[in-house]
Design a protein around this nucleic acid. Structure first.
Lengths: 346, 346
DNA sequence: CTGAAAGCGCTTACAG
DNA sequence: CTGAAAGCGCTTACAG
């Protein structure tokens, strides 16, 4: 099916016995045009449902009002919240959003950057594919189009970056455990190469330091692939210690849920004997019993903020100050770390 | 920041001492052009990183290669899977996807349809906002642009529609319960106005009928707002019956999980005394104990299929046969309805 | 206050 | 095999 019934300025002009220029100006509310003409034109345009042709307009202005967004995976709940923030903020500003997935593939990411450019987007919001090594193609693209990194970022790219304040979040999670009286706090983190894991670990250390707690290497566990199964395994390691921890901070909810499962299985009281904190505020964190204390990452806020900074770069001609914006998180206290006086709801 | 370093055909032509026409044809692999010229042109184009201007191209062709997608809510896991399918299939065909949310607001949906049109999309994929009453604006848009409904659809719109085969799914869920020996099967459904609930209920009835089971009105429960809390409540109603059911089919996982919670609380053995089946294959369905038997809806497949039909309408000039495509689901048997011989994993 | 004309970057029928 | 020219629909400096 070919697009049909397309009304152009020419048609409107002819119908009203005016020139194309006048109709164009009338529709754009140009001061030169008389009110009478404006009214006549807009009445007719509404009647025939005239819609300006974006291509003709974008063609002249070199502007599409479309933002390209590349994320590793769209069907990850946190990603959806990021996108929701981006889309909402974009629409407020008259932009639409094209979304693509790199599926955590660096090669695919490179291609997408290129096709985004071909589709004439005015700017790009990028959340990096895991293990992105070579950022040359990103630097190259930045010569053509404004680009902002968000969520999954890299210090190798000199651009504005919008991220979670992971260190602060971890700090507050651990501080909360300390406030509830815990002193031997274990951490389950990732082995290597993970920017996020590193930041959360720093927050953990910072909290221990602030409260003069001993750093016990036995309580610092790392895993290659942080998931529920690994959480279970490492919890087993921790409860086998002669000197057990009294709290476990898992840097993901999945691992935290694994920890709870192991503790439950071993009839260890949560949080009295061992408290547990996760990170992410996944839906699952409210399904497990006891419910998991966790960090809520305001995805909407990150997406929204990233878009705001991108628009700023798109619209300002002056030199840009690239900055790293860290969005604060919310600690959500639940029964895995704090027993309320009221009877717990199921 | 203005887009910069834009290389045009004109620049390439001048640099090579050729005409714009020749360069254009060489780049588009036109048979008239000699191989020698083609090579020379493409080598240079690569070198200077020439990217054809989409607007100029789309402008002539009345074609953007962009598909507009409107969904009620992007941060709903099932929606993400739909979108994943759409995006993947779109990219295979050289299309990009603009995504917007109606946030289940009919007014917003109307506006979005209009802005999608303004952005020059080649076609629209629409999943209806809840309680969409007036479809006039949709019918009107269909005069201009091909449109396919998916997931949340309406018989009031004469277009191709891609949906889950809900009736078949429910039928198979109930048949599975019957096969495990259950005879008094309850259903928890929605009160009114829900297309989906109705279809699932029909499947339920069909299965009972096929196996000559009595339809007991006491076992057919409805609720306005189907959620976990309601699942809990209605399960309480069911276990209070003198003649209890031996299985409960909840038409959503949330309700199914509520049912399990109530049964667990009352120390009713699942599935021996009462089996439970949900619908959706949400992540939560694997977190609850016992794990919930449920229906997996292949969101990717629906999204992919919807896009395929839309492209067909975009590309074919001939008359379209609007049809309703029903995608088959998968029954996922877990411990809430079937006890395997092997020891259940945690 | 209004109109004629140029031009955005491309493709393509027409001419050679 | 290659080029000159028209035209896609719009905006806007220029002229009146």
């Amino acid at each position: 099916m070919v697009k049909k019934n397309i009304i152009t300025l020419k048609i409107v002009a002819k119908a009203l016995g005016l020139s194309i220029s006048t109709v164009s100006r009338a529709l754009n509310n140009h001061p030169d045009i008389s009110n009478q003409t404006k009214e006549k034109v807009s009445a007719f345009a509404n009647k025939v449902n005239y819609v300006p042709n974006v291509f003709a307009r974008g063609f002249r202005a070199h502007k599409s009002n479309i933002i390209g967004v590349i994320v590793p995976n769209i069907d990850h709940h946190f990603t959806s919240t990021l996108l929701k923030g981006v889309i909402r903020e974009a629409e407020i500003n008259g932009y639409k959003v094209i979304i693509s997935e790199s599926v955590n593939n660096e090669q695919k990411q490179t291609e997408l950057l290129q096709t985004m450019n071909q589709f004439g987007v005015d700017g790009i919001l990028l959340s990096l594919a895991k293990n992105t090594k070579n950022v040359d193609h990103i630097l190259k693209m930045m010569n053509h189009i404004p680009l902002v990194l968000f969520d999954k970022v890299s210090t190798k790219v000199p651009c504005t970056q919008v991220i979670i304040d992971d260190e602060d979040a971890a700090f507050r999670a651990v501080e909360h455990l300390i406030n509830t009286g815990k002193r031997r706090i274990a951490i389950i983190k990732e082995t290597v190469n993970s920017f996020i894991s590193e930041k959360r670990y720093l927050g953990y250390l910072k909290a221990l330091k602030k409260y003069d707690l001993e750093i016990d290497e036995n309580l610092i566990l790392s895993t290659e692939d942080i998931c529920m199964e690994e959480g279970k395994k490492l919890a087993n390691v921790l409860i086998s210690l002669k000197n057990r921890p009294d709290a476990i901070f898992a840097i993901t909810d999945e691992a935290g849920i694994g920890v709870i499962k192991t503790l439950n299985k071993n009839k260890i009281k949560i949080p009295d004997e061992i408290a547990v904190v996760g990170f992410c505020n996944s839906v699952n964190s409210t399904i497990i019993k006891p419910k998991l204390t966790t960090i809520d990452q305001p995805g909407n806020k990150i997406g929204e903020t990233a878009l705001k900074y991108l628009l700023r770069e798109i619209n300002n001609e002056d030199e840009i100050n690239h900055k790293t914006v860290e969005i604060k998180t919310n600690l959500i206290v639940r029964n895995s770390s704090f027993k309320s006086l009221k009877k717990n709801k199921v």
